[in-house]
Simulated scan of single mutants.
Amino acid sequence: MFKFTGKVLSLTAVALMATSAISSAQSMDELVAAAKAEGQLTTIALPHSWCGYGDVIAGFKAKYPEITINELNPDAGSGDEIEAIKANKDNKGPQAPDVIDVGLSFGPSAKADGLIQPYKVSTWDTIPDSAKDADGYWYGDYYGVLAFGVNKAVVQNAPQDWADLLKPEYANSVALAGDPRTSNNAVMSVYASGLAAGGTGGQDAAAKGLQFFKQLNDAGNFVPVDGEAAAVAQGTTPIVMNWDYNLLAMRDKMAGNPEIEIVVPKGAVVAGVYVQAISAYAPHPNAAKLWMEYLYSDEGQLGWLKGYCHPIRFNDLAKKGVIPKEMLDKLPAAENYEKAIFPTLEEQNAAKKEISTNWDAIVGAVVK
């Protein structure tokens, strides 16, 4: 699985009833008391090195020391999380997860299968509508945006937008992070280039993205190899498209040898989002709701940002001016993030079908 000042503490019962899908009205104080009485929260698939989760979990523990966090299988994937709910429907023991953090496609399917329950956090209205279930069954938690990672030792003038990649100065320089016939990362990069070229979304943006990559390949700028960190560092593929959190982590790991510049393109800024949900069979439902309140508070959201995963409430946090300057200084231009587009699951599926089916015929470059 690839899977931070103000915690809201003064909600009234009326306000929480208006924004939450709790079956019976609860104030925050009542929710905290109920969660403490349960005394435990069971999570799954939350590696401490991913998205700042180590600090996020520590923050929750410090705020609510009466609640023990039982962490299951930190390295599991989204599919494993869903199977864990299914396997423990009748089990209230330590192997039954209360909450899940999964890829976008797993939210709607888990809802359809009756595996998750609705809950709307107090900050619900600041989560983009396109990144949450209207009934509160699942909701985006953090996202990455597609960006350019540029080896400054090889490329002096970093491209600032998708169209720039076609310039002659970037000959034999541009790579994808994966094979667009099979890699979601690569598929969404092609999709984003199509949106920047005037695509309207879904199949149309995918088709325009294929034409863009045909131009890129015909111009001799596209390098058909997987743009991994080693290839970027060695200059084999000095420009790579990837999720920003991967690129930012790569930049930090290289520590200036070579210097890596991260550019969020000015045109289409496409986001890939993960979602949170509460198991329909959660043994500790109040602790699960309190966990969600913490994750979607300013404190919890900034925790993810510290780990380079953009919190879903980023625009709201930026508007309120609560993001520490030292965090913003480590990121590409914040104004570009404010343009982030969250493709729907339907749009993503249409793009995947169009790109995986027609890449060979239109672009004709086999990524190895």
Rank of each mutant, 00 (worst) to 15 (best):
A361R: 15
G201Q: 00
G321E: 10
Y274Q: 12
G198Y: 04
P324G: 05
K353I: 08
V263P: 04
I260L: 14
V102C: 07
A280L: 05
Q203P: 02
D164Y: 08
S193A: 14
Q211I: 09
H310E: 12
A334W: 05
D75I: 13
A192Q: 05
G107M: 05
N157H: 15
L210D: 08
G199V: 02
S356K: 08
D218Y: 10
V232A: 06
T344N: 09
K89A: 03
P311C: 09
G136S: 01
A277Y: 04
T123Y: 03
D113F: 11
V190A: 02
A37Y: 07
S105R: 15
L16E: 06
K339T: 06
S183N: 14
V102T: 10
G199I: 00
K289T: 05
T200Q: 15
P258G: 07
F212L: 02
T236G: 09
N315T: 14
A163T: 12
G220R: 03
P224A: 11
G201H: 02
V240W: 04
A282F: 00
D141I: 07
S23G: 11
N257I: 08
P108R: 03
N349R: 14
L72P: 02
V269N: 01
A87N: 14
N217I: 09
W138E: 01
N184A: 14
F4N: 00
H310R: 11
E169G: 12
Y294S: 03
S10F: 12
D204N: 15
N73I: 08
R181N: 06
M292V: 10
A280I: 01
G209R: 04
G114Y: 11
R313F: 07
L176Q: 02
A219V: 12
Y245F: 15
E169W: 13
N221P: 00
K214W: 08
A13C: 14
A230D: 15
G194A: 09
V240Q: 06
Y64D: 01
G54M: 10
D316T: 13
D135H: 11
W162T: 05
A62D: 11
A365E: 12
W138L: 02
N73S: 13
I69C: 07
A84W: 05
K89L: 07
I262D: 02
V145A: 11
Y170I: 04
W291N: 00
W291I: 06
K167D: 14
A196T: 09
G201L: 03
K352V: 13
V150S: 04
W359E: 06
N88G: 05
L295I: 10
K368R: 15
A196I: 08
Y296S: 00
A255H: 09
C309R: 03
V273M: 11
K368T: 14
A58P: 03
M250Y: 09
A177V: 11
V270T: 09
G79N: 08
N73H: 10
T19L: 13
Q234R: 14
E346K: 14
L216T: 01
A45K: 00
